[in-house]
């Protein structure tokens, strides 16, 4: 049975899922949701699909999932036979989960700043930008240590779903008026990610890495 993704092109969270579907060479049916200006994700029809009124939602063989990080786990668990994208080794698994939570938590401040600047969301932009910078600093400090150890990725020697989950809102930071001048290790990690085979850009991220 086909995989179906409820998707919006400009959503960084949907982009997380599109990226992994691409890396894993999975075919899927794209169901565009009129996120803006229609606000289709807030309609009763869509809330029957996801009561939280959020995208992405993924349907796969009778399972319906919300939350980009949960969807990444599902796809990697089910379809990545190599086990590289979601490593099960005890010294890696917990770390991947930890950075997945960070992607869905602290890093979402960068998403908030972007929604404010791009689509006019009514929120405290200074707080959003300050929190995004705090999250970027944590990620840059971590990637700096990884560089010194000779590593490229957030966890281990191969990109994982932690990299996939952290990439979009970091790469899209400029959309929310947040520069990456202070984060050299983070910039080099972004560049390595964009050089991965089957990487696909989205609006706001250059094709020419």
């Amino acid at each position: 049975m086909a995989i179906k993704l409820y998707d919006y092109s400009l959503s960084g969270s949907c982009y997380k899922v599109r990226l992994l579907l691409g890396f894993l060479d999975l075919e899927y049916e794209r169901h565009p949701i009129g996120f803006y200006p229609e606000r289709e994700h807030r309609t009763e029809t869509f809330r029957a699909i996801n009561p939280l009124g959020q995208i992405p939602v993924l349907e796969d063989d009778g399972i319906r999932l919300r939350d980009a990080q949960a969807i990444l786990c599902h796809l990697a668990n089910k379809y990545d036979m190599s086990g590289l994208w979601l490593p099960r080794a005890p010294e890696l698994y917990g770390l991947v989960m930890m950075w997945l939570m960070f992607a869905g938590g602290e890093l979402m401040a960068a998403s908030a700043a972007r929604l404010h600047d791009l689509l006019g969301y009514d929120l405290d932009i200074e707080t959003a930008r300050r929190n995004a910078h705090a999250a970027f600093r944590i990620l840059d400090d971590h990637l700096t240590r990884r560089e010194i150890e000779g590593g490229t990725w957030i966890v281990g020697d191969h990109p994982t779903i932690a990299d996939v989950a952290c990439f979009p809102y970091t790469a899209l930071s400029n959309d929310g008026g947040i520069g990456l001048e202070d984060y050299p290790a983070l910039r080099n990690w972004l560049r390595s990610f964009m050089h991965l085979p089957k990487f696909d850009a989205m609006s706001g991220i250059s094709e020419f890495a």
Partner: peptide, 23 residues
Amino acid sequence: SALTSIIDFQQTIFAQDRVILEN
């Protein structure tokens, strides 16, 4: 095309321009 897809296409294009315009 569904109207949603037409809007999605146009917004995709404009968001590509926007990162240039702001820089």
